[in-house]
Amino acid sequence: MDNVSAQTVIAGDAEITGTIKSAGTVRIDGKLDGELHCEKDALVGKSAVVKGNLNVSSAVVEGTINGNIVARDRIELKASARLTGDLKAKRLVVEDGVAFVGRSEVNASGVAPAAPQHSAPPTPVPPGIDANRPGVAFPKR
């Protein structure tokens, strides 16, 4: 994501309460108490604190978010990211060091993941395998 071409920048010393709607790219370095609806990419800087939900195309998170993130394409959590909430996207990249408490729903194919099953169905035995062969294992030296 190109930080230089970010169209909307919320500086580190700014505090915003309310909903932000943008047709372009948004970079947040300050505090946002509300929701963010962005048509393009959103970048949450290291010093940013967001209390609300994000609805974006793609998101790169380096700061703190207390809310849900819904991305139509990709979410990237950098090592300094702190996320408390759910996230939903087509693609996800998480770096080592992220603190994340919530639910994740990410599928690269875009198809909704199947509900977890509590019993593992047995895989059929491949053809050509005779289960009645006697024998003993010999060690390889």
Partner: peptide
């Protein structure tokens, strides 16, 4: 304690990462 997800992975789970 630590989670690393590569691009292209599928993750549909309840998570608690860190601590």
């Amino acid at each position: 304690a630590h989670l690393t997800v590569e691009d292209g992975a599928s993750l549909a789970a309840r998570l608690q990462v860190g601590g």
